[in-house]
Amino acid sequence: MIRFEHVFKRYPERGEALTNISFEMKVGEMAFLTGHSGAGKSTLLRLIGLLERPTRGQILVNGRNLATLPRRQIPYHRRQVGMIFQDHRLLPDRSIFDNVALPLVVTGLGQKEVGRRVRAALDQVGLLKRERATPVALSGGEQQRVGIARAIVGRPPVLLADEPTGNLDPDLSREIFELFERFQYVGVTLLIATHDLALVNSMQHRTFTLDDGRLLNDTGRW
């Protein structure tokens, strides 16, 4: 589902962020991406979502070679990749419903179908009753769950999360991770960047460790 082949990413101002990264994830696989801050976790995720392009190497997502994907096709690629951020990236002046509906609205889906799918997504994260609220009225954990609902509402085959529990206490973090496990059961491929090692170790999933832009350790076999 996701394949990296000798991927390098160099920033002119910071130097090399990723060095010779190669790995492959199968459909329905869930993996953690760990490492110290600045190790390149976010960069790696950004490459998958085509927020950035690699300096060298090839990335294949769902059979698409991102290196040869024309700019016009980028929006369609992003609809296949749900992204969850530490700071949620919600629109503060829109309701929870509107925030979650955004990925569907941009595809031109009919209102009825949008309503149905948004409620299904909110139900999955346990926020069905808060659809009329605005993000500021929600707690940090709830806001993160809205971000997750927005990422899954378009039913993307790939889900990326960048420090999704960075600001949450352990109980809430575990809740969020268990939510991710449920998506894995329905065949979604998940890659979660986190430095919550205690939580990572308590769950049995493949784990990549990045150190200064190099893939140091990969517990999975492929």
């Binding site: 927020l51 016009r72 369609y76 690629h77 992003r78 992204m83 990236r89 941009v106 595809t107």
Partner: peptide
């Protein structure tokens, strides 16, 4: 954010 969730330039 709209670009992030896959809105086309035209949209």
């Amino acid at each position: 954010i709209m670009e992030l969730v896959g809105a086309t330039a035209a949209f």
